[in-house]
């Protein structure tokens, strides 16, 4: 038997949450982070495959202890059903970005289109002065694309945070002792 040891190095962690789809739940979760002084790098909220249930994906930077504590605090909230800390090598992570680039002359346009192609991104809107690129990929790919397109002048941009899901048969619905332990304190039976 040993005391729990935690990795003290700061890195990015992805938290995946299943919550009841009720008013105020997103703000309840988000507030928890600011209350405890943790900075959210990104947050994405949307449907899960069950009605009445929302799945939230949050990326934060911190050490393992801190991430475990914030996960613990999230799990305590009544509308929160599951919180899972996803590991980088056992999950897949993707982002989406819409980037509107200034492209007035011919050569610029060609270059932007070329870059978009290399990144398997699509041009989804064209005007006399602009091209809008829609890209999908992991964090580093999107980051690299934005950097390259930046050289032409980005007029505006909208980007999602990271979405993540586990590889293979594992899922957020898996039973675990940890999950049961948290539910104990929330028990209303």
């Amino acid at each position: 038997m040993k005391r729990t040891e935690f990795d003290t190095q700061k890195k990015y962690y992805t938290l995946s949450l299943l919550v009841q789809d009720i008013p105020g739940v997103l703000s309840q979760v988000a507030r928890l982070f600011s209350r405890k002084g943790y900075n959210i790098e990104s947050i994405v909220s949307g449907e899960s495959n069950h009605p009445g249930q929302t799945r939230i994906t949050i990326v934060i930077k911190g050490d393992e202890l801190m991430v475990n504590q914030i996960a613990a605090q999230c799990r305590k909230l009544i509308p929160v059903q599951v919180v899972k800390i996803l590991e980088e090598d056992t999950s897949v992570q993707r982002e989406t970005a819409l980037i509107k680039v200034m492209a007035v002359d011919r050569t610029t346009r060609d270059e932007v289109i070329q870059i978009a192609n290399i990144f398997r991104a699509n041009i989804i809107d064209v005007s006399r002065e602009t091209l809008t690129v829609a890209a999908f990929g992991d964090h580093s790919k999107i980051k690299a694309l934005i950097k390259l397109l930046g050289d032409f002048g980005i007029l505006e941009m909208a980007k999602t945070g990271t979405l993540a899901i586990e590889r293979g048969r594992s899922s957020i619905y898996d039973e675990s002792k940890l999950r049961e332990e948290y539910n104990y304190g929330k028990n209303v039976l």
């Binding site: 729990t4 613990a72 948290y182």
Partner: peptide, 17 residues
């Protein structure tokens, strides 16, 4: 009774919920 108390302030060797 509250799992979130475990390892919050003091690291523990064993816990029972």
């Amino acid at each position: 009774i509250d799992r979130s108390e475990i390892d919050k302030n003091v690291r523990t060797d064993h816990h029972i919920i």
